[in-house]
Design a protein around this nucleic acid. Structure first.
Lengths: 195, 195
DNA sequence: TCTGCATGCAAGTGCTTGCTTGCATTTATG
DNA sequence: CATAAATGCAAGCAAGCACTTGCATGCAGA
């Protein structure tokens, strides 16, 4: 093999993820996954043992990605711009891991471990935000009056809500393009930090 | 019948809704529904024809409730308090119709009509908020500078995000009690309206 | 050229699902 | 009390599911 085709492992995983996004865990059947991946169903079992094994592989890949979530991000000390950067990083990560968020929301009852893997995303975001706000307050770049915990949670829920609306709703009255979100919403939010 | 027991229709519907909340549409099987309702599976088919028919009944009930969503609500002209009231009304309605929101989020690909029924909730909320903000600005109770559209969407996504986090996450770092949400978050939000 | 590994293929197993049907039994109603 | 409607019950059906297995095939490296 001289070319560089995606490995069958990845082909299968990607097919599975596609189906997870479209219909959740239950409707992402092995047969469909095999068909989308262009692979025989038996191959999937040989590689992943189980349907659960397939899911585990997805979760593992996700947790690995998560550990590097804010790695490339640079803050410059301009609150408005930094918040935009952080929000964008968070949004893009979630968008690239929709399947985890969706399955986590869907199966939180039957697969609590899954739910906990999903929670890790906003938790990382929260930790970073809190540190940032604390820092900015020490530098007097945001008001002393600001309730950091409240501001942090506000950002988290706002971003989480926008994300889910964006991937599941179609009505333009409920979803704006990401750039508008960063530009208008984060700016709106940033204002309340100077009061 | 001299007592007033819930009709079998309602028993079945409620059982179905319970299962929808716990595991979504696919895992809410007719057999389980019958068992939870204390009813024979065949009865369900005689009453609702189909599994789809069951879902339709749930959606119909929902749409009926939705038409009265803000009926009992009273605004007093105090922005902070009014926003709390509105947020609470919205949150409580969503909590009482979790099943619709969840199934809508889960099955938006396969059942777009469902998705549209879910969208109606935030759309109603949006309409009310926009009117309220416009009104308050005319009365100079909020700043002229405020971007009403941005403020409206901010409230919607914030509330939507908090709601989904609240029903699916367990970590107290990601979910606060509703009272805290109204008290701290809405107050935080209200501040940005006076800038 | 030989060997071993990865894959395809097809048949099959046992379980669950949605859904139907015919008949007995209970329950409400006049 | 009589009649009709609402339910329970049990058997059954076709389809889809996860998963297994045995064998043929093809491809890679020694």
């Amino acid at each position: 093999m001289t070319t560089n085709p995606t490995s069958k492992q990845d082909l299968i995983l990607n097919a599975f993820i596609t189906l997870l996004i479209q219909g959740g865990y239950q409707s992402a059947t092995i047969n469909k996954t095999a068909e989308v991946a262009g692979v025989n169903p038996s191959t999937i079992f040989r590689k992943f043992t189980d349907k659960e094994g397939l899911l585990s592989a997805v979760v593992e890949r996700h947790l690995h990605d998560l550990s590097t979530i804010f790695d490339g991000m640079v803050v410059i000390g301009d609150v408005e711009k930094d918040l935009m950067t952080m929000s964008q990083t968070y949004q893009e990560f979630q968008a690239n891991h929709q399947e985890i968020v969706l399955v986590g929301v869907q199966e939180s009852f039957r697969m609590p471990e899954m739910s906990r893997a999903v929670e890790e995303i906003p938790l990382q975001f929260k930790q970073m935000l809190r540190e940032y706000f604390t820092d900015m307050r020490a530098q007097h770049k945001i008001s002393d009056q600001v309730d950091i915990e409240a501001a942090t949670m506000n950002m988290i829920w706002l971003n989480f809500g926008y994300f889910l609306a964006a991937i599941r709703f179609e009505n333009p009255d409920l979803v704006t393009p990401p750039e508008d979100f960063y530009d208008k919403q984060i700016r709106f939010f940033a204002k309340s930090l100077s009061v």
